[in-house]
Amino acid sequence: MSKLLTVSPSPHVHSSDSTQKIMYRVIYAMVPALIWSVFMFGIDALRVTLIAVAACVAFEYLIQKYLMKVTPSVTDGSAIITGILLAFNVPSSLPWWIILIGAMAAMGIGKLSFGGLGSNIFNPALVGRVFLLLSFPVQMTSWPGIKMAAVDAVSTATPLALIKESVKNGIPIAKVQGLPDLTDLAIGMNAGSLGEVSALLLVLGGIYMIWKKVITWHIPVSILATVFVFSGIFWGINPEMYVNPAFHIMTGGLMLGAIFMATDMVTSPMNPKAQIIYGIGIGLITISIRMFGAYPEGISFAILIMNAVTPLLNYYIKPKRFGGQ
């Protein structure tokens, strides 16, 4: 035997899964929604996505190489996910330089300032999104009309913004003009940011990820159930002033948030019990912001707030131990 024998501690075999594979599965899961957004908003959607992905990858590479002086880890695919998610969270009409700023905030502040993949507390894409929302409120809420609609409106309000406005003015929901019906919402025939429009395709991506064991059902289901129940209570009390729960679930990026952003592995809790509490928290905060806050929708803030709670949940909520307490 020419070579030396290797000695290592057990186990001596390893599953074929790798971090890279997991990341690419997330990307595959987002492809249907991405295609639909191109279909809806035209080539602009693709432009935004490509700029965001390229910028995120480039920023990660540059910051790691020249500021942090470590070996860049862009090949793991996580920067691509952040890029796509960031693009999913902005309107298709967003100028390129704002996307660059968003990507810089996402990668620089949201991820690498904490030490890179695995160390960040907040979901990088959401950090970028909220950064842009607070810095460029006008551009971030000018929603281009959908290409498929007969009337090519320059700017439309999102369904939730319409409702917020009407509630503020005391107009009953039933009289609000221009609200899409539930079927439109499910398919994605409404205004909004790239990735939030088609609830059905997002669910499809979610099912793929659960099937491939990238995520578990706990977080998305608990968020959706909480939103449904909580908004349902209000709707039951006063259907005049509150929209029905199904509407809440299908609008304002809730699906996108519940399936793709709240489930981000790095920033979500690590055991099923804690994940359900985390999901319930996101659901409650989202609806509270939507109903009582200044913003028409609140899933981004809700996820960021619960991201901050995640270490506490990990500390206090323990998985079911074998052999009881």
Binding site: L4, L5, T6, V7, S8, P9
Partner: peptide
């Protein structure tokens, strides 16, 4: 001289 190689933490 080495007679084996260690591959672990």
């Amino acid at each position: 001289p080495k007679t084996s190689q260690f591959d672990g933490a």
